[in-house]
Simulated assay, not measured.
Amino acid sequence: MSFGDDLYVLYRGPLASCNYNCPYCPFAKRVDPPELLRGDKSDLERFVGWVRETTDRRLSVLFTPWGEGLTRSWYRDAIVELSHLPHVARVAIQTNLAARTGWLSAANPQVAALWATFHPGQVTIERFLSRCRELDALGVRYSVGVVGLPAHFDDAVALRAALPPSVYLWINAADGHVYTADEERRWTALDPRFGDSVRPHASLGQPCHAGETAISVLGDGTVRRCHFIPAPIGNLYDGTWRAGLRPRACGNSLCDCHIGYVHLKPLQLRDVYADGLLERIPAVWPLEVVS
């Protein structure tokens, strides 16, 4: 398989339940009914089967559940299995890191990775860092992030000081918050890539990898260009997704989410993240400091 055969797949099933109660999240403390959980498990197992059988592409998979996936055994099982498939370059998941991590000992640490978010007020820094140390011991790649609200700044500073320098700490600009020049400077001191997040990107008419070498997949197999453009371009399970892949310009005016704008071609962020694209780890990290 050549580099041109790479396909980034962002999967989001119906799961929407979470064990946290973050005030900035619409899915906080949501409880999914048993029938939805059964459906989510069935959908995920079908998706894993598709990945297993689709050997003509090199696949990289990011699970982006609305809720917390790692509290569910089927997400843990999926990550372990996919990490051992020879045509899967990366499998990662967005997580609050509340669940146990020992199951990752069965995964291939060269392939499995985590995109972890620290949520002040929901977990202590000490407990979160204990999970990070477990990942370090397992040799699993991970990034850590914080939503850049003013009330989170001191916690973010403490987290950066406590994490190993090799771990990338990213800051997401908070929805609806307008940053002063001083605030932007302070957050950028923690995350040199904060400028990518602090203002929405004008995307209308801009060329994008989404729909060409990156796709968004729903639990029923509906394939979209990305999570933020609802029009389907095919279905995973009837094969129509293949004919739907082609270069496209973005049809949205703005793109303000990392999992979207990271694929905008003019930003060249694929070069920034390279093999760490899905788990949000820059290829060159820590950055060299020039005195």
Rank of each mutant, 00 (worst) to 15 (best):
R76C: 06
S73G: 06
W66I: 09
G67E: 06
V61K: 02
S60H: 15
L82K: 12
S60N: 14
V61Y: 01
R58D: 10
H84C: 07
L70M: 12
L82G: 07
L59W: 01
L70K: 12
R52P: 02
G67K: 12
E81V: 12
E81D: 11
T54A: 09
T55P: 00
D77T: 11
V61G: 06
E68F: 04
S83N: 06
R58F: 08
G67M: 13
R72S: 08
S83H: 05
L85D: 11
E68A: 06
H84G: 10
D56M: 01
E53Q: 06
E81Q: 07
I79H: 05
T55Q: 05
H84Q: 11
R76Q: 13
T71C: 15
T71L: 12
T64V: 14
T64E: 02
W74L: 00
L62V: 12
I79D: 06
L82P: 04
I79V: 12
W66Q: 13
F63P: 02
Y75K: 03
P65F: 07
T64W: 01
R52G: 06
L82F: 06
V80D: 11
V80S: 12
S60Y: 05
G69R: 07
T55A: 10
T71F: 06
L62S: 10
R58Q: 15
T64N: 00
R58I: 15
D56R: 02
R72V: 10
R57D: 04
F63E: 09
R76P: 01
S83P: 03
W66V: 10
E68G: 04
L59T: 04
E81N: 06
W66N: 15
L85T: 12
V61C: 08
R76W: 04
L82I: 12
E68L: 02
P65A: 14
T54D: 08
I79L: 14
R76A: 10
L62Q: 08
L62F: 15
L70W: 05
D56S: 04
W66P: 05
T54S: 03
E68C: 00
H84E: 09
W50F: 15
L85Q: 12
D56N: 01
G69D: 14
F63R: 04
P65E: 13
Y75S: 13
R76H: 05
R58S: 14
R57C: 03
H84D: 10
T64F: 03
P65V: 09
S60I: 15
H84Y: 03
F63W: 08
L85H: 09
E81G: 10
S73N: 09
L62K: 08
L70P: 05
I79C: 10
E53D: 02
T71Y: 07
G67F: 04
R72C: 08
V61M: 09
Y75F: 15
V61D: 05
L85E: 04
V80E: 12
W66A: 14
W50C: 00
G69Y: 09
L62E: 11
S60K: 10
R58V: 13
S73Q: 15
H84F: 11
S73T: 08
T71D: 14
W74V: 11
E53C: 02
W50D: 07
Y75G: 09
F63N: 04
Y75E: 07
L70Y: 05
V51S: 07
R58A: 13
